[in-house]
Every structure is written in C-alpha cells, then in structure tokens.
Design a protein around this nucleic acid. Structure first.
Lengths: 334, 334
DNA sequence: CGCATCGATGTAAGCGCTTACGAATAGAAC
DNA sequence: GTTCTATTCGTAAGCGCTTACATCGATGCG
C-alpha cells in the first residue's frame, strides 16, 4: 500500500505538503494541490489512519458501551451514533457491558487503552462515583440515559420520570384505578425513574400505590409474563398494567392471553420505548415513545462538538417522552 | 499517561525487555519480568495500542459491515462476533452499509483505511466480482450469509435454500396446497435462495408455483402487510403464506387480522429467522430458526484462526436451519 | 584455561504520519 | 531595483512501540 512518502515523490513535493492537502490544513496553492491529488489517485493512496493517530495523538475513534447489542433498543441507539460519527469520518468501537460491573469496567478499560477520543456510555452497573472519576481522567465521557448530577452537562437522556408519569396518567384518564406495574430492575436508574413517575401519577390522582400490584422484572420478555402471572394469581383485582418496557409488555400480554384474558377487554396494557415490534403485537401496543435514534445522534453530536471542535452543532440533552396511543388500552367499562 | 520508556527506566531495563514481557515474546528471566510488571503496576501503565499497531503492522481490530444495526437480527449477529473477538483482545469496528452499493463500498473503504486486520461482511448490494477482488487485496475477508463460489471457504452461512424448503414442506405436510409466498427483495441472494427452496418444496410435492401468490417485499414489516393485502384482494384462494422473514410475517399477520381473518384458522403463516419477538406475536409464530449468534461467533473464530493464528479453533461454515413449530400454522381443515 | 555456545538483554532502526520551524519565493510598495 | 511582508513549501524531530541484530555473561567442554 502506498505511503505518503511515495505520493510526495511522485508529486514532486515534500511530505509536509502532502500531509497538508490531506488535512486541508495550512495553505497550499491550487496547482500543487492538484498535483498531489493526482499522485494520490494514481497510487490509490489511502492514508494510514493508525499512523495519523499516533502522530496527531488523536485516534479519531469513539468508544461506545451498551448493555446489549441485540434487542431493538440499543441497535437503534447505536445506529444514531454511528451515523453521525461516520459522516464526520470518525469511527466507533462498540463494547458490551452486560449491565455487570466487572464487565463494564473491563470494557471501559479496553476502550481507554484503545485511546478513544471520547466515550459514549450506556452503563448501569457502575457507580456514579466511578463515572465522575472517569470523567476526571484524560478521555471525555458522555452518558446516555442516565443522570449523574455531578456531570449533568454530559448526560443525554430521556425524562424517564415524565414517561412513567404519562403512561399511568393515561390509564387513569381512561378511568382505571387498579393499575399494576411491572418494573425494570430497580438498581437501574431508568427503571427507578419510570416507577417514580408512575407513583407520582397515582398520587396526583389520589390513588394509593399497592405493593401487591408491583412486580420487579428484568426488562426481558419472560419477566413480563412472570409479572402478569403473579398478578393473576393474586386475589387483588386490577384492570390495567403498565410495563416499564415493550418487551415485558409483550410477555405480559402473552401470559394474559394464555390465561384466557382479553386485552384490552379484561385488562389494559401500556408499554414503554415504542420499539418497532410494539406496533405488530396483538393488540397493537400503546406505549411511550423513546426517541432512541435521536438520542444516539445527539450523543454523537456532543462528541463532535466538544471533542472535535464542531462548534456549529446544537445538542439537545433532555428529551421528552410522548404517549403513543394504539389499541392495548381502553376506557374502563363503567 | 505513562509510556514504555518510563516503565523501562523505572524497572532499570531496556525498552525491548519491557516490550518482551508485554507480549510474552522472547525469553525473559522471571526476576526481570517481575521487576517490569511491578514498574508497570506502579505507573498504571497502559500500552498505547495505536503505537503497537503502527509498529507491528497489526491493528488488532476487525471491521464489520452489516446492512442495519437496528432490527433484531443483526444485533444478535454482532453480539456473537464481538463476544468472540473481544475475549481475544481484538476490537470490532462496526459500519452500516444499508444494502446500498455506494455505501457498502464506502464503508469497506473506511474499514480498509482503518487498517483492519480482517473484514467480516454481511453485504448484499456489492457484486460477487467486487468481493473476489477485495479478497485479492491485502486484507482477509469473511462473508456472512452469502455464498460467493470463488471464495467459498470464506463464507459462513445458513443454508437458506434448505430453510425455504422446510418452511414450505411443513405447510404441505399440514395439507396446504395453495401457499402464498412473501419474499425478500430478489436482488439479495438470501431472499433468492429461500424462494428457490420454496419452489423446490412445491415441485417435490407436485404443486405448481402460482405467480399470483407471490409478492416481493423488502424484509420490513410493512411490506408483509402489503403482501397480505395484495393476496387478499386477489380472487385466488390460498390457505397459507410463508414469509421470508419474521418481520414480514408480523406485518402479514397484522394485515390479515385487520381484514378480519383468523390465524391460523383462516390462513396459516410461517416466518423465517426466529427472532426473539416471533415468540410473542399472536399467534406465536412458527418459523425457521436462524442461529445468528452462532454464525456471528463462527465468523469471529474464523478470523481468530486464519488471521491471528489460533489454530486450535474449529469453525463451522455451513449451518442448517430447523423448523420451530408454534401456533401460527395448523393442518388444513378437511 | 581458552574457546565455542547459548540464553538474556540492550541498541537502534524503523512503522507512516503530523507539525513546529525556518527557508525560499513572490508580490507589493517605494 | 531594493526592501519588506506574505505566503508557500521543505526539513526534521518526534509519536510509542516492535524487532532484527548486536552484545554480554555464564556455562560447558576439551
């Protein structure tokens, strides 16, 4: 593969000049610029980005960590990030943390030793303190879907509290009073926030939160089924259930069906995230929209702006969830 | 951040020795090795992998290209790849091709200029010739879910033909004769192979392929709905439909429901891929299992074996699809 | 005791690029 | 034509590491 040296020889200029046209830095006459460009084309020259990184002390790569790669949510998030970053010629190194402290730290180490210019993290296991400390280090960090107060300006997130609130408020509006809740794991802050929103909505309506109608799942489909079965086995009547994500809602609906219940006839269901398949469940799931793609894009932009100096970019840090009304919830029969 | 030089000074040895313990190459006395290790720990030394790459001409990174990052399928595939590779200390650079020739070439260029040690590609737009040519280049390539005869030994894939065949064979076994087919885009080889399998199964059973009961979708949910509506608008009776992936099956089932049909009462449906949500559709989708995770892992292993010299690894190149029987298909009522 | 041998370690030359600095050239002003 | 300033371009010193080769001691043997 041709090197910059060969290009410079062929173009009859120095290394430095070639480098200049490569980076559009410094000033080069149009004439020499053309000569260089021609030489590059003739040699099918591709700059060695490793060498560029070493010399410039910039790796042009940003590290990403997500809990999982499969599942509809994170894929969308990463799509947003990758798109924005790649347009800017940066590349992304993706790592999986599995919501497990050791793995998250490990992955971050990996990313740091890879000399990423920045990190975009969707982590849940690691503590706030760890993140603050990491942020004090040499590599800039942006947090997705999590608020760490000490580094608030680096957190790109959805207002999960508000999301939880409007999900339940919607059901209350439809006349439901006995509303069950299938939560995500409470050691995850988004799960906690959504639950807090739910409780707030209940309180606002003067409805008491009934711990018997609460189930802590793990954001996976089967735990939604477990939750629904648990509720059904109870002697406590309920007419609606809100699930902290669409996957658990799918599980809950399946279990309800298997137990002979009609949705929304016997019980209304609301999900959270608005992943693609929620529109194809039966009945089509009413849910809360999570603009994962946009959030990913914003995270990418943040990096472009703060790390690569693209001052022209605007970045929005807080997103408001909205209610998507479909078929899985209906007014409480009088 | 500490460099190898500082480590060598602190340990009282030369650069080369430090490098040796770093890489477990060459022989180093246990005593000096310990000294070096201690110095590294004291300085919290992290090797600069950029510099390592430049010097060793190995980037320890492998490039991945997939059509999309969201959607249940590719996430799973990448999870498999990433897992295997990261265990080996390699990292993955993920790029999106959008099944579009220009973007695919562009992304591959990007990966190459990033000096990836190998490429794992799931591409559909680019021609066989292009791939053969690419393979002649300096960077090893492995192809996922596509067979290019000239480089067969580098193709890790599912037997899509067989998958298409057993999907339809299953319906035939259940007594169906009028079987519609919603295909993926025919310029994609997997879509073609699945269709060919379908036709073969029909032929085996002496059933004629009816072009009116054929619809070419795009592997997305809405096109499944479109296909189903098209069939329903026709005057051609049919009792079953096979869809070339689960997403289109979801769309088809939704459309059927909206048109007042029962599944599987009025029409049986079979999907392809066995993505997670297929088990949560209503009715639970009978489908063909695509071991995406395993295929990803194999692709990773292939690279480990062929590029990084891990000769101990076994790699399986061809995978056999299997039928997953759930609820969306039933015997034809007599 | 001298010499060949071998393993442990050091020396130094890159890997392909960026970039501070200075040289050279061109144009402007007189 | 001379001087001065701007601008373009070349020189060379790294970036942090790997690795071929050289060196040095210690060991074994005649």
């Amino acid at each position: 593969m041709a090197t910059i040296y060969e290009v410079s020889k062929r173009a009859g200029v120095s290394l430095a000049t070639v480098s200049r046209v490569l980076n559009n830095s410094g000033r080069v006459t149009e004439r020499t610029r053309q000569k260089v460009l021609a030489a590059m084309a003739e040699l099918d020259y591709r700059p060695n980005s490793i060498a560029q990184s070493l010399a410039s002390n910039r790796s042009n790569s940003v590290g990403i960590m997500v809990p999982e790669l499969h599942g509809p949510f994170f894929g969308t998030l990463i799509t947003g990030i990758e798109q924005v970053l790649r347009e800017a010629g940066k590349h992304t190194i993706v790592t999986v943390g599995h919501s497990n402290e050791a793995e998250e730290k490990d992955g971050i180490d990996f990313l740091v030793s890879r000399r990423c210019d920045a990190l975009i993290l969707h982590v849940d296991a690691v503590s706030d303190e760890f993140i603050v400390e990491l942020d004090d280090g040499p590599v800039p960090v942006v947090l997705v879907n999590r608020l760490v107060p000490q580094v608030e300006e680096k957190c790109i997130r959805l207002d999960n509290f508000h999301g939880g609130r409007i999900a339940t408020a919607y059901l209350l509006e439809l006349g439901h009073r006995d509303i069950a809740y299938i939560s995500g794991p409470l050691w995850k802050s988004d799960a906690r926030d959504r639950l807090a929103g739910h409780k707030q909505a209940l309180a606002d309506a003067g409805v008491e939160f009934d711990t018997r109608l609460f189930f802590e799942g793990d954001f996976q489909e089967p735990s939604g089924s477990d939750g629904m079965r648990r509720f059904l086995a109870l002697d406590v009547p309920f007419t609606a259930v809100v699930c902290a994500n669409d996957g658990m809602a799918a599980g809950a609906m399946r279990a309800a069906r298997e137990e002979g219940l009609q949705i929304p006839g016997d019980v209304s269901v609301v999900g959270f995230d608005n992943v693609t398949f929620s529109a194809y469940l039966y009945p089509n799931l009413s849910t809360i929209n999570y603009p994962a793609m946009q959030i990913g894009q914003m995270a990418g932009r943040w990096v472009l702006k703060q790390v690569y100096g693209r001052d022209d970019l605007e970045v929005q840090k807080l997103f408001e969830p909205t209610l998507i009304v479909r078929e899985s919830a209906r007014p409480l029969a009088p």
